[in-house]
Design a protein around this nucleic acid. Structure first.
Lengths: 151, 151
DNA sequence: ATGACTGCAAACTCTTTGCACAACA
DNA sequence: TGTTGTGCAAAGAGTTTGCAGTCAT
């Protein structure tokens, strides 16, 4: 569903979410949201800035951070912390796992890997109000694994 | 297994791992490892420093970071990045999920929640050499959920 | 004795904050 | 027109690095 959307559909989603909260539609927000939706790969705040600069120059990094935080609270974007370096932002809100390379830090999506609903239920049993689950697989990416074997 | 170990057993594990790699056994390493193993809760580097200072004063934060990284490569400790604030370190190496409160950041263990082996297999199919999986459940902790209901 | 480890200080990266100006509604 | 949002600069938190001295082996 998110995978094949026209740009106007993408914009519509953001505009609707903003209007619902009486927030303003700005070019910065539109462009940042588009950048996240158009890329398969996750991006750091700085990469987002780099991606939008050609189409809308002069945007500042604090604005990018503020907007990413806003998009997260609107439920349009998810935050993925790998523990090494900057936080990554992901516009694919649907459940999917991530692989993270322990060596080079490369991060990829892993489709069709459902985070167990049992854990969700168990969290609820403990009084926790679960919202969403995030499954991260650590290891070596294909390139780094090959490099290790060669050495 | 890790749950009920005497201190000498805990020390043994570290000493063995160090010797195996011809690394030195220092009081700093012993004390930091003990601190992580004795606590149920995960700790930031700074909390580790606070925990060891009574028994071994004068240890520096850079040493704590270096030691935590070493313990991680030795497989005695795991890193848990929540994306808000400092990275947490966890001495429970066995598979278990974590709950993280979106509001207050509180992090807890969730036992008996197996991270799906299917995802592991799927990662391997993609050429990725999986090492370990980490399942994080986001939401509201019992306290924050109650607070939201009250408001 | 020798090389690894530590402590100190400083640097570095990522992210947030405060305030004046701009621009959406 | 009245706020909300943005840009700039600076500060803040967390983590890493360089180097001289210490300590395990």
């Amino acid at each position: 569903m998110t995978g094949s959307s026209t740009q106007s559909e993408i914009d519509q989603r953001l505009v609707a979410a903003l209007r619902r909260r009486n927030l303003r539609v700005t070019s910065q927000r539109l462009v940042i949201h588009r950048a996240l939706c158009s890329r398969i790969q996750h991006m750091t705040a700085e990469q987002v800035l780099g991606a939008i600069s050609p189409s809308l120059p002069g945007v500042s990094l604090p604005t990018v951070y503020a907007t990413l935080e806003l998009l997260e609270t609107l439920g349009l974007v998810r935050r993925l912390a790998t523990g090494s370096g900057a936080v990554l932002f992901d516009s694919r809100v649907q459940q999917h796992a991530h692989t993270v390379c322990r060596q080079c830090g490369a991060t990829s999506d892993l489709d069709g890997a459902p985070a167990s609903n049992r854990a969700f239920a168990r969290a609820a049993d403990a009084g926790f109000a679960p919202d969403h689950a995030q499954l991260v697989i650590w290891g070596l990416c294909p390139a780094c694994a090959a490099q290790v074997r060669a050495a």
